[in-house]
């Protein structure tokens, strides 16, 4: 059996409220809060990027895995905000944790599902016996164009998972992927902000793909929504995961532990992976968890996890995701946010 040996999260401390963004653009904050079901988002400071978030999340995963980083045979970072256009984020992560030089490394990209792609590949490599442990990270410091609906949700955070065969925290019982060419969200080369297809991102893209992946994996595993204690969906806003959960027959109680977007925003590649970390933080041995990511373009990776006894000793070895999310927040105004996110054009 393969699965998760260690998991960890990292979320920046800074936040901006929907009201603060809406005030600048003359928008109606209550409408946005209701429409997106989201009231604030995390903001990375200028010294925080996908690499720094990935390193901190990975260090937390290593604390829970209690392994020698030298035994990690692959480091894969999934993101759509890699700091370099040419040079992998994973090399810095591998160097910082001491996994070099006997290590395979690659960066993954597939909009918001780059992190789950890395998880999928890591499980395969460990299962095939190519390596003892493999590290998958999903993280982003995502950007939304000023005044665009995305600006209210695009946030920052990362989750890391070390996959292995022994001392598992959660076993991967089943995996499945659903993928089509659906151009609902994209960013062309040299463009700073992404574009999206407005309402097209809903029915034909997110809902079709996520339900396709959920139905596919439940058919494959011969399971029904009531067989799962928890479910995590990708969360581009607060509303979509609740709606898709209802469409599939899941209850709000099953979704809530991993439903972070209302107070975190959309962490893109970190979205459903971070939801999984917060769900594992409160899980009990034997709990079944369904995780469905979503990446525009479009595809979903689906996983069925079964939590093991080791969760009891491992979960408190590193900081819990909700501690990072809800404690000690620093709220910023739009001017500070614009400076931090390099939205202000300065003289050279």
């Amino acid at each position: 059996m393969v699965g998760i040996v260690g998991y960890g999260a990292m979320i920046p401390r800074h936040r901006i409220k929907v009201e603060e963004i809406a005030k600048v653009w003359g928008a109606d904050a209550p409408s946005y809060k209701k429409g997106l079901m989201l009231w604030q988002k995390s903001v990375p400071t200028p010294d925080v990027d996908t690499i720094t978030l990935s390193v901190e999340a990975t260090k937390n995963a290593i604390k829970r895995a209690q392994i020698n980083p030298k035994d990690i045979g692959a480091v894969y970072v999934g993101s759509e905000s890699h700091p370099y256009a040419v040079k992998p984020s994973g090399t810095t992560v591998a160097e910082a944790i001491g996994a070099v030089p006997d290590c395979h490394c690659a960066d993954f990209e597939f909009a918001c599902k780059a992190g789950s792609e890395a998880m999928f590949v890591c499980l395969g490599l460990v299962k095939s016996g190519y390596m003892k442990y493999a590290l998958a990270v999903g993280g982003d410091t995502s950007q939304g164009a000023p005044g665009d609906a995305l600006e209210y949700s695009a946030s920052a955070g990362a989750a890391a998972f070390i996959m292995g065969k022994t001392n598992l925290i959660a076993e991967a019982l089943e995996t499945y992927s659903f993928m089509t060419d659906t151009p609902d969200f994209w960013r062309r080369e040299h463009e700073f902000y992404p574009q999206h297809g407005g309402r097209f991102t809903g029915e034909p893209a997110y809902f079709r793909t996520v339900t396709g992946a959920a139905m596919g994996i439940m058919n494959k595993a011969k399971m029904k929504p009531k067989d799962f204690k928890y479910v995590i969906f990708h969360q581009p806003n607060g509303k979509f995961p609740l709606r898709v959960g209802k469409m599939l027959g899941f209850t709000k109680k099953q979704i809530e532990p991993g439903w972070l977007t209302p107070r975190l925003g959309n962490t893109y590649s970190g979205s459903s992976p971070l939801g999984l970390t917060s769900t594992l933080d409160i899980s009990k041995p034997g709990d079944m968890i369904l995780m469905i990511s979503y990446g525009s373009g479009a595809g979903s990776d689906a996983f069925v996890w079964r939590v093991t006894d080791r969760i009891k000793e491992a979960r408190d070895l590193a900081v819990h995701t909700t501690t990072l999310l809800d404690k000690n927040q620093i709220f910023v105004d739009y001017g500070t946010y614009a400076k931090y996110r390099h939205k202000i054009l300065k003289n050279k």
Binding site: D47, V55, P83, A96
Partner: peptide, 20 residues
């Protein structure tokens, strides 16, 4: 101590990381 970006060499240079 937390891993952070400590310096960026304009928009084109290599990024420096260390602990803050």
């Amino acid at each position: 101590l937390e891993f952070r970006k400590i310096q960026t060499d304009d928009t084109h240079g290599v990024l420096s990381y260390a602990y803050k």
